[in-house]
Amino acid sequence: MNIFITLLLICGLIFFTGGTLGILRFPDFYSRLHPAGKLDTFGLVTTVGALALYIAFVQGLFLTALKIGLIIVFVFITSPTATHAIVDAGVRAGLKPWTKPSSGEDQT
C-alpha cells in the first residue's frame, strides 16, 4: 500500500513540475494560463489524493480522509474558475495574444 501511495505522490509532483515549467517557459500571458489552470489543479488533486489514501488506509482516520476529499472537490471546482477570472481580466485589459510570425519581439 505504501508503494502505491508513494507512486501516486510522485505522479502528483510530476504534474506540479509540468505546471511550474509551463508557467515559466511559455512566451505569452494566455499560453501561460494553460498549465497554471490545468496542471496545478490536477497536480494538487493527485498529491492530496495520495495523502488522503495514506491517512484513510494506513492511519485509519476515515473522517479526516473525507475532509481531505472535500478539499480536493473544492479545489477541483474553484481553481479553474480562478484561472478564468484571470483570463477575463486579461481580455478586458486588452492583452493581445502572442502570434507566431512576430516571435522575434515579444508583444507583452
Partner: peptide, 24 residues
C-alpha cells in the same frame, strides 16, 4: 512577470502548492 496578471498566475500557482504542502 511582465504584466500584473502574470504575477497573479505566479501567486495562484504558489497558493495551490502551499495547500498540498500544508497537508504534508
Amino acid at each position: 512577470g511582465p504584466t500584473i496578471l502574470d504575477r497573479l498566475i505566479g501567486t495562484n500557482a504558489i497558493g495551490s502548492k502551499t495547500t498540498s504542502l500544508l497537508i504534508l
